[in-house]
Design a protein around this nucleic acid. Sequence first.
DNA 1: ACTTCGTGATGAAACGATTCAGCCGTTCAT
DNA 2: ATGAACGGCTGAATCGTTTCATCACGAAGT
Lengths: 351, 351
Amino acid sequence: MDLSQAMKKISIKDVAREAQVATGTVSRVINDHPSVTEEIRVRVRRVIERLGYEPDPLARSMRSKISRLIGIVIPDLLNPFFAELVQHAEQAATSRGHNVIFMTSFDDVGKEADRLAQLASRKVDGIILVPSNGFHALKAPKGVPMVVVDRLLPGYPGISADHRGGAKLAVDYLLKLGHRRIGCIAGPSNSVPAKDRLEGFRDALSACPEAAKASTPLIVEAAFDYHSARLASTYLLAMARDERPTAIFTSSDQQAIGCIRAANDLGIPVPAALSIVSFDRVQLADIVTPRLTAVRQPIGDIASAAVATLLDGLKPHAFEAPMHFQCELVEGESTAPPQVPPPLTARKDPG
Amino acid sequence: MDLSQAMKKISIKDVAREAQVATGTVSRVINDHPSVTEEIRVRVRRVIERLGYEPDPLARSMRSKISRLIGIVIPDLLNPFFAELVQHAEQAATSRGHNVIFMTSFDDVGKEADRLAQLASRKVDGIILVPSNGFHALKAPKGVPMVVVDRLLPGYPGISADHRGGAKLAVDYLLKLGHRRIGCIAGPSNSVPAKDRLEGFRDALSACPEAAKASTPLIVEAAFDYHSARLASTYLLAMARDERPTAIFTSSDQQAIGCIRAANDLGIPVPAALSIVSFDRVQLADIVTPRLTAVRQPIGDIASAAVATLLDGLKPHAFEAPMHFQCELVEGESTAPPQVPPPLTARKDPG
DNA sequence: ACTTCGTGATGAAACGATTCAGCCGTTCAT
DNA sequence: ATGAACGGCTGAATCGTTTCATCACGAAGT
């Protein structure tokens, strides 16, 4: 016992010798290859157990070209949406016996290309990419399946939430509450999801000409973060009372929080005088006051689908339509029916 | 050219043949081994360039036992503090030519052990571990350097912020503002950092007997999250006005937000009637209303130090004192001097 | 002049798995 | 009865490096 403990490492050869079979046979036992009699299979298994043998992943992948490793490249982990995505992807990969190499591109096209090359040289079995924003002719590494998530890219298999449908959900909800002047903090125009959400905003309005007319001038563009949205919201809310929106759709939770802040600063109570619906619905949405009504992306589903696509080798997707997942509206406390605006001219007092 | 493109892959042998040297020589050129004449070095380099040869990391690590991979295991990526830690660690590793395998333990000791074993079998060059909470005899994989971060563990090289000193910083600040009844939302008692922060809280008070006497009954324990802290805060703030704390130190930003919410619900204005200082100071602290005054952990430094420790092979740390990094107080808008409490009996009205 | 050394380069043996060609014995169809 | 097909196993080649034991050669020491 002690001697065997002192031994450096047990390899497939040791197992083979001990079990009186060839190394190839042991290999087939390990890999559950059918061509092995039950008797031998059991015998080998027992020896493996006894020796505490574990195959070396490195040697294994070197020969087989399968690394049981997948790469994930995202722009920024501080964005809770991406953090959640990574967490779910890791979970999905782990449950399928893979590990994940994590990388950040910092929204830099150069870094992104570099990271992809590194992953390729590591011979990962697949890559999940959330591309950096803006224009770029992405060059996917040859021979490594890749799936683009969230920010879709033409020509690559893509998976994302149905941003357009989700936004429509949000605005439909506001319309149903009775709102007609609905502002929109759109995301940056170089972001695909932002554009999609804006489309969804318009989709919803197109069913209600009155709202469409009143709301179209109330669309402003801002980055996805708190500060930009606070600024943009201040602009919208500084309008005269009968012109300013009674509700605002924001393209991210952080934007919504900036919007709430702007409303507070202007003395506009939320949701009494201003309803807010946001997108993403990450943890954040639940701890802010008031809790956000928001459209939740099915991040878990997206992550699972991405991993499954890679690991099941569903390559043909490349030129088919991207996969979309339905969003869901989660009601919080940031929405209410619109106040009846007090007549501007005279007060209808009794008598 | 076209033909060479069609070729499967160029290996070290191709380079050797083309440059008229032995493969071993090429290897030494690649690894900047000194024993190689300038002439040959140049010649080989040129061939490498021309052929676009890139060494295969797998084959490389198989022989050399060096994978240029480090593993990082954290309990939960949705905790923004850990997300930031991972982000920084990835950055540090990348800048040193390493990649990182990311794993989540979900605060489960069993999963944690499993992940560590996986990393060991992948022959990573080092492991950064944020251990799951609670008791456990952690078994570090043999032969892989490991550094424990944040939640220190006796017997392992550890790196963390100076939680105790940081907490003292926070409470000193409150004392300086004039507060004497200072509440404390302590973290869960099975968490090492939580205990350290509580120590720091006590350290600060020990300099001011008056405050110590008034504050000691105001310590309550809660999980690090929003909801627990909201509950705990409500308990503290529901006390009579001259008994309840005029300031509260919370052990996390999320706790602080729960605390603010509790104060709001009770009609206690922050910071006018209640000052709050929290720990961590992640992004969150900046977008909440009011912005949090908080103690910031130098996450970047911690991550860099962890990576450096692993990659520079500073193993002897194991039984030395853990490495601590100083925290820094960041002023926000959640703190103010205490209100002068209005006399309880009669109002000192003129006349 | 002869050994001793050191330097730079070589060729082959690891590393630890997978996989491929081949072999032997059965079984099945003809 | 005979050949083809096939299942089950073996042994060796292979993957792309690093590293080790040598070796050739010239400089230096005696």
